[in-house]
């Protein structure tokens, strides 16, 4: 399973890529492989205020609906428009075209408390 070195991870299998005060959030390769066949993604409203571990999106595979949690605090500033017509991008490119939403960080320090790639690898036994 791919666990890129330049990201941070939540225990609930989201990744986050901070770039200045905006961070991009998606689900990990491990998570998409467990879910398989993602057929629908429900994204948060732009402007929604999120807190860590708050349900922010729903990713639905053929078999089940899974809540996706925000790893950090902040305000949703953008959602991935491609996922409405092509939810399978979450399977095929979980760290790139399959990103879910962008969040404006209200507590940037929270990033440091998330798992490092090494810690996440050990969590999933990769």
């Amino acid at each position: 399973m791919l666990v890129p070195d330049d990201l941070r991870y939540a225990e609930t299998h989201e990744w986050i890529r901070p770039q200045g005060e905006i961070a991009t959030v998606g689900i990990t390769d491990h998570a998409q492989a467990e879910l398989t066949d993602i057929v629908y993604v429900e994204l948060p409203q732009i402007g929604a205020a999120l807190e860590p571990k708050q349900a922010a999106a729903v990713v639905e595979s053929v078999k089940a609906a899974s809540d996706i949690y925000s790893p950090v605090s902040g305000e949703v500033v953008e959602v991935n428009p491609e996922l409405e017509s092509n939810p399978g991008l979450v399977n095929t490119e979980p760290y790139a075209a399959g990103w879910l939403f962008k969040i404006k960080l209200s507590k940037p320090d929270e990033i440091a408390s998330l798992k490092t790639p090494a810690e996440y690898r050990s969590q999933i036994g990769a």
Partner: peptide, 11 residues
């Protein structure tokens, strides 16, 4: 039942 358009999967 059949959904008329795009929707999350019914369950």
């Amino acid at each position: 039942l059949k959904a008329d358009g795009k929707s999350p999967p019914p369950r």
